[in-house]
Design a protein around this nucleic acid. Structure first.
Lengths: 118, 118
DNA sequence: CAGTATCCACAAGGATACTG
DNA sequence: CAGTATCCTTGTGGATACTG
């Protein structure tokens, strides 16, 4: 279905032989300011429109959210579907690869919460 | 023991009320090119000297590895111990907070490996 | 509604050389 | 051995305004 991904999307291009290549690859996808937040919201709330995501997150601009979604779509983590015209309505959802991020997102979140509790 | 950490080290400073704050905080710590790799190596191999880490990782420069280790130390994830003088010998190890990253590192690594297998 | 188009400031990381 | 010091290029994200 979503065959829009290639090796070049990923850190694999510069660490192919290293034992931590998968890790680097995952951090390449999630290691930006809003990327993990978008995945988190889609995991928690299901498919959302562009404006819904923007409202939910709050402190992100149109431009950056748009870039973030384009990155995640290119990585094969998010699907973009035009649901309606006039007015244009778009829906963003997680692909199977995106859903598969749930354990990693949760593990990071758990660690961060404990860390913040000192 | 390692009380070198404060709230300002973390994303908490800009997302305190958000449900994804812990996640953002964790990504602030790990979301750089070499930070997760250093944690990965210390988890896999135990305490290492500066040169050991540099050799193991390979494609990182002195300057960047040094900065990375300083960041992780400031975040309270890594401990730095001077083991010897003449010649100077230093050992880097994980703190409890650092060891606690293991599940998150593994989850990211697992995801990345599956992702790379298409 | 769902984006683009510009412009801009700062941070991250690499190359190279040097030091206590 | 374990770093620092410079310099430089690119990436990342924010502010603001505009559009099909």
């Amino acid at each position: 279905m979503s065959e829009t991904r290639s090796d070049a999307d990923c850190a694999a291009s510069w660490c192919t032989d290293d034992p931590w290549c998968g890790l680097t690859c995952a951090v390449d996808v999630l290691g930006h300011k809003w990327h993990p937040v978008v995945v988190h919201r889609l995991l928690a709330r299901g498919p959302l429109g562009f404006g819904d995501l923007a409202d939910d997150i709050g402190a992100v601009t149109n431009k950056v959210l748009s870039e973030t979604l384009a990155d995640l779509e290119a990585a094969g983590v998010v699907d973009r579907t035009v649901v309606d015209d006039r007015p244009v309505r778009v829906e963003y959802s997680l692909t199977d690869d995106g859903e598969a991020l749930a354990p990693a997102i949760e593990a990071l979140q758990d660690w961060g919460e404990r860390y913040l509790d000192d």
